[in-house]
Amino acid sequence: MFQKALLPLDIHETETEIVSMANYINQIGIKYLRLLHVVSPGWGNRKQIMDKLNNLGVLLHSFGYGITIDVREGYTPGEICEAATENDIGFIFLPWRRKSKVYRTLLGSTAKEVVRLTDQPVLVYKSFPENGKEENIYRILYPTDLKGAAARAVPYVKALGKQASAVVLLHAGQRAADPVSEEKRQKAINKQMGELKNIFSPYFSIIESNSSIGIPYRNILKQVDDKLIDLIVMGRFNKIPIHTIMGSTSVRVVDQARCSLMLIP
């Protein structure tokens, strides 16, 4: 599951950033990295690009990773998704570049586009050195609506139990239409969250379970701040047409969460 990862680079990464990424990936247990750079058709000096990628590959190799280098031409998010599919990649590791809201609104974000387009798991790596936090994966947040999409993330959460010590389970749902149904709903959720706790108990020493009502992405972001979460692991919530216009929960969390996150399609 965590053997092979695709790492798209824009070759402007500093050595510190690469080291930081390498350390982070190391915690997950990656053995093999495919470095990818996408150039716009007709642009870029191939030789220079290959040289830079080779240098970065050498640096990453020193951490013990097997390295393959890939340079493609085309629409960056589309090429990233295609490379991931073609090469039987475990997940795409996407470094998140902070950009201003105006920039994001006008030019969009490659990471958000990849999240929207791909059918592969994606790990969006967000670094916040100013927080003074070590970039270790101690506390994982697993948001769930107790449905199929969220259930697909369960094996990934279990696998991360080797590294993380605590998992926070968050049920993000909507209130029932009347008090009696709401009481029934709460009871059913408590029961299912209890079952989920049992599933994770062999993998984590600390398991916390919470339930929330309201807009899911807001509740997820609140938990990230309140519980000092290091990594969110979430299934991509079922898509409905309105999400195309308003943005899905996953895309909003990608955009606004102040920690890394792994999205399982």
């Binding site: 909507q174 209130r175 029932a176 239409a177 009347d178 008090p179 009696v180 149904s181 709401e182 009502i213």
Partner: peptide, 22 residues
């Protein structure tokens, strides 16, 4: 709907239970 189907008092405020809860 909220009164006869969901058993809540026939008040306008009852219609907002899904949004406002208690």
């Amino acid at each position: 709907y909220f009164s006869f189907r969901r058993g809540m008092p026939p008040l306008i405020s009852s219609c907002f239970y899904p949004l406002l809860g208690d």
